[in-house]
Design a binder for these strands. Sequence first.
DNA 1: CCAATTCCTATCATCGCGATAGGCTTACTT
DNA 2: AAGTAAGCCTATCGCGATGATAGGAATTGG
Lengths: 168, 168
Amino acid sequence: MLPMKSRYALKALVFLARHQADGPVPVAGIAAAEAIPVKFLEAILLELRNSGILTSRRGPTGGYQLRVEPETVHLGDVIRNLSGPMAPLPCLSKTAYHRCTECVDEATCAVRLLMADVHAATLRIVDGTTLAQLVARVDASAAGEAEGQSERCRPEQGPVSAKLDFID
Amino acid sequence: MLPMKSRYALKALVFLARHQADGPVPVAGIAAAEAIPVKFLEAILLELRNSGILTSRRGPTGGYQLRVEPETVHLGDVIRNLSGPMAPLPCLSKTAYHRCTECVDEATCAVRLLMADVHAATLRIVDGTTLAQLVARVDASAAGEAEGQSERCRPEQGPVSAKLDFID
DNA sequence: CCAATTCCTATCATCGCGATAGGCTTACTT
DNA sequence: AAGTAAGCCTATCGCGATGATAGGAATTGG
Ligand code: FES
Ligand code: FES
């Protein structure tokens, strides 16, 4: 499960990307718009600021603002900064690596072999998507909503398991 | 993080796939070979039995055994049976779906849009890999270990982010 | 009958997570 | 200078999931 911290952060960043022109936006404004607990969001935005993604100004007319262009914000970094590495196994994290005590040989560990692919696939998506791209996709999704043209189409995917479309 | 329950289960299944010919294998044997707490593994194998993957026999010479061929065991089902759905968001699970209270419109939710791809990629791997394939990969990995021929090669992947190889 | 093994229930300790409380600091407005 | 709106920071709390253990009942081979 993606932690609430990261979910809220992503929502807030999308919101801020949309309001780049408005100058600093106060926490209360974002929280109200996105239905996020104010004090919790406060802590989140603070972390994002300390990690360099946001700027802040205090006092009246203060608030938060994107420090960098949305095209340069990789969503994987956002999640990592707030919720730590997302490796499904300790032995797969580069920044927080530590050996799996239960495994004798890392090189021939079946669990590791399987999850390494999962991890790689995940990173390819979250690190390969920028905030700008996400905003664009939301817009596209909203545009095609009235139409029966749901989701983004990926018709040529190649049969993987020949079974049914995967669930859950 | 993949729960210990699922990690242990995968290891045990690989072990059992390797010892298919030996007849029933007692829990203690698997636990010793894979360094898994006995009582914990006991509970895990019991669940796997109740979900139809394993057979058991009691008494002396008893133990656990694969009920079906390793080619028909999809690893995603193993994980699901033991640790529940692996959807990164409640709104992405088919079997345990429930609406995200914090999100106004599911169709235009940025978080959902991003994680849907992650989820799909994960399922494509875990449900697209069978126990037999995993065993084969372990063998292949063990064979190429002495050689500099590490991991499975996927040379043509297409530039995704043009950045560095992803970390964590 | 005995011993080995599965089966089942209950219980525990710990930890991470989501969230809140309370106060301090900065800075704009009047 | 006062007042106030905002960010900044630390501490704490409740809760549930997780990993693990205890103890015993049921089954079955020798
Ligand atoms: S799971 Fe990390 S080495 Fe086996
Ligand atoms: S995260 Fe599920 S609808 Fe937004």
